[in-house]
Structure formats: structure tokens, C-alpha cells
């Protein structure tokens, strides 16, 4: 039971790192980035290729960060001409990109599932309140919590964060005020993607790297975003922690119906609070 709760936290924080980018990109630009899962998968494969030693693991993180930033900026530029088109067009574009990216990864790394070793020293397990638990996951909880605090502080306390929040709240108003937020959009898209690839590297030792993982984590991230409320950092955190627990608990208790448990949670939230737990009323109207 304790192990399950800890697993829930580890996955929850990982999901937060993944989902917060998706949520902010959507909140700011009204773009549903379906390539987000492929970014995670890219990070996971990088981890699989480089990890094994601390140097390799850190190198994977660094490469993933740079690649994620670049990919996000590129995606931002690609979606820019579609600003006034329907959600479906944007979704189709990012979907196309996701397919290309995922297939390219399979061509490079093959389609066998790869396991990713945790960095040396973290690959053992420790005893927590009498239960043995993998050290890496425990560290992941810590790293995730730190990252969550950093993102929260940046979005809630800094000037650029204020602009991001203002754009989420009322895009047209910010544009009407004459603020040129194109650069901010590129940066948010880039950072959101960076977080996704980083989450991929960090999640590698848990999920491994395999074809189809991109879709799995994309769905988890979407569920988190819908549950938490679009464009809200705190919502993404809350949603991620809830889904982390629900998912691990579901797998423990009802292994065959785990995915249904997830969907049931989603349906429940949508019926009771359609705008998400922490989403404002306005977020849904647009």
C-alpha cells in the first residue's frame, strides 16, 4: 500500500513535469499539441542511448533539454500560421509531426522495448517504513517536487509568468494592449517541450523506451490537463498527483480495468466540474 502511494507520487510528479507544458501551451496559444507525447518518447530514447553512468545520464538530460527547447520553438513556428484555423487543423498538424517523430525514433532505435538503467547509486532500493522501495523513484519524487516549485514560482511570481497568466486569462485583451507576446509564445512552447523531453529522460528508468509509449503518456497528460483545468499550473500539479495515485491504485486493485479507472476519474471530474478542478469559468468558454 505504501509502495503504491509512493509510486503514485513518483508518477504524479513525472506527469506534472510532462503536463504543465501541454497545459500552458494550450492555455496561451489555444493549441492542443499532440506531439507532446513524442517529445517525451524522444527523451526516453535519449536516456536509453546515453544513460548507464552519471555522466551519460546528465548528458542525456542536457541533450534532451536543448533538443526539447529547439523542437518546441520549431513547433511554435509551425503552428503560428494556423492561429486562426480550427482546433482540428492544429491537432492534425501536431498529430502529423508526432507520427513522423515517433517513426523516426523507431527507425533509429528499433522497435524493441528498451530498458533504461537508473544512474549508479540510485539503482538499488532503500527501506521506507519497513517496505523496500527503489531509490531512483524516491529521488524522482524529490526532483519532481523541486521542479514543480520552480515552475510555480516562475509562472506566479515573475514578470514573464504574469504575462503568461494574463494571456491564458484573456488572449485578446493582452493582444489589444499591444504586448507583442510572440516571443513569449515561442519561449513557453520551447520550455514546455523542454520539460516534456526532460520528463522522458527522468521517466526512462520507470517506463523504459518503447513504441507506443508516446500515445500512452500523451493520454495521461491530457487527462491531467483536463482534470486540473487548462492553463493552470496548480491545476496541472493537482491533476497529476491525483492521476498518479488513481493510476497506480487502479493497476494494483483492478489490473485489467486500470485504463477504465482512469477514464472513470476523467468522466467524473467532467460531469461534476466541466472546467476542471482549478480551471476558471472563463477557460472553458473559449
Amino acid at each position: 500500500m505504501l509502495v503504491s502511494v509512493l509510486n503514485g507520487f513518483a508518477i504524479g510528479f513525472l506527469l506534472f513535469i510532462l503536463a504543465v507544458g501541454l497545459s500552458l501551451v494550450f492555455g496561451m496559444m489555444d493549441v492542443l499539441n499532440l506531439a507532446h507525447g513524442a517529445l517525451f518518447l524522444g527523451g526516453a530514447y535519449l536516456g536509453a542511448a546515453l544513460a548507464g553512468s552519471w555522466g551519460g545520464f546528465l548528458a542525456a538530460l542536457a541533450v534532451a533539454a536543448v533538443a526539447g527547447l529547439a523542437a518546441g520553438a520549431l513547433l511554435s513556428l509551425m503552428t503560428e500560421p494556423l492561429r486562426n484555423r480550427s482546433h482540428l487543423d492544429q491537432a492534425l498538424l501536431t498529430l502529423g509531426v508526432a507520427f513522423v517523430a515517433a517513426e523516426a525514433l523507431i527507425i533509429v532505435f528499433g522497435d524493441d522495448p528498451l530498458s533504461v538503467p537508473a544512474p549508479p547509486g540510485l539503482d538499488g532500493s532503500v527501506t521506507v517504513l519497513g517496505a523496500t522501495y527503489p531509490t531512483y523513484r524516491l529521488v524522482l519524487i524529490g526532483v519532481g517536487a523541486v521542479l514543480a516549485i520552480v515552475v510555480h514560482v516562475v509562472v506566479e511570481r515573475t514578470r514573464i509568468g504574469a504575462l503568461v497568466r494574463a494571456t491564458v486569462a484573456d488572449r485578446e485583451m493582452v493582444a489589444a494592449l499591444g504586448v507583442d507576446n510572440r516571443l513569449v509564445k515561442v519561449v513557453v512552447f520551447g520550455v514546455g517541450s523542454l520539460l516534456a523531453t526532460t520528463a522522458g529522460v527522468l521517466g526512462g528508468p520507470i517506463y523504459g523506451a518503447r513504441p507506443g509509449l508516446d500515445a500512452t503518456v500523451l493520454i495521461l497528460a491530457l487527462v491531467v490537463v483536463v482534470i486540473g483545468g487548462l492553463g493552470s499550473v496548480r491545476g496541472a500539479l493537482l491533476g497529476a498527483l491525483i492521476i498518479g495515485q488513481v493510476d497506480t491504485l487502479g493497476r494494483l486493485l483492478l489490473p485489467e480495468l486500470a485504463s477504465f479507472v482512469l477514464f472513470a476519474a476523467l468522466a467524473l471530474v467532467l460531469v461534476l466540474r466541466p472546467q476542471g478542478i482549478l480551471g476558471g469559468a472563463g477557460a472553458r468558454a473559449r
Binding site: D30, L32, I219, L222, V223, V226, E256, S259, F263, L270
Partner: peptide
Amino acid sequence: RTGGVFFLMLTLAIGETVQQLANTW
């Protein structure tokens, strides 16, 4: 009852859920 992008997300989630069900059941 949802609109726009929520509809995209939900149908995507349903599709994946049903596929996982087919895989595990």
C-alpha cells in the same frame, strides 16, 4: 456536452482507453 478542444481530448482518451481494454481483457 463538451466543445472544441475538449471534444478532441476526450475522444482521444476514450479511444486509448478502449484499446488498452482490448489489450488487457
